[in-house]
Amino acid sequence: MLRIEGLTAEIEGKQILKGIDLEVPKGEIHAIMGPNGSGKSTLSYVLSGREGYDITGGSVTWNGQDLLAMEPEERAAAGLFLAFQYPVELPGVGNANFLRTALNAQRRARGEKEVDAMAFLKLAREKLKKLHMSDEMLKRNVNVGFSGGEKKRNEVLQMALMNPSMAILDETDSGLDIDALRIVSEGVNALRGPDFSSLVITHYQRLLNYIVPDRVHVLMDGRIVRSGGKELAEELEAQGYGQASAA
């Protein structure tokens, strides 16, 4: 269970999050929708521990632990995964090596046995097959020369390998064609279960046709102004944020 209470945060003195209250119970998928500049990406970065954000108030707990007190890598090891809006290129770093290093770093932190190269390859191939992706993905350097769609697929591959209990998808659907959108959604839906929860941050309702949320929240100007069921997303799509948030 992810519990956010009265969270306020600023960047370089400018307040972006103005008091967020949100609960994502175990096993549920919640969507956060909102216009540009409403604080969606800031929320995802604050939750995953990126530097440069000053948290000025409130709290975030994750299964009872104080999430904000943890380093980004500790959050990852605790089962939190952020799918980046703009996945980062790591020149010269092979994707397979990166994924195995990351997976083993998490396993080490949890006191689990590391996965050797052979076992990792087997696991990775299994996941690739499920996600209808080619083995080539492993041989390339991390995100280097990847198209926008390939980068997002690589995020989903990473998510499948890390097998997180909480995934934050930061506008994963932006810039995706319909096929890529389907693959990405299948990746999330495959993880769906009583032990998996997710915060799907998106601008458009489109993604939510594929990943059907349990709850939808509208983020406007650093606050959650409305919450509802999946039908809220359709209402937003039809009426726009101005109308819907005022309703």
Partner: peptide, 28 residues
């Protein structure tokens, strides 16, 4: 870049492991 470091850390690597990985990639 700060975003490279954060990307690695968000995947579970600590800062030194991240620098090591990025530098080794640079020198590959």
């Amino acid at each position: 870049a700060e975003d490279q470091l954060f990307y690695c850390r968000a995947r579970g690597l600590n800062e030194e492991e991240a620098v090591g990985l990025i530098v080794n990639g640079f020198c590959r």
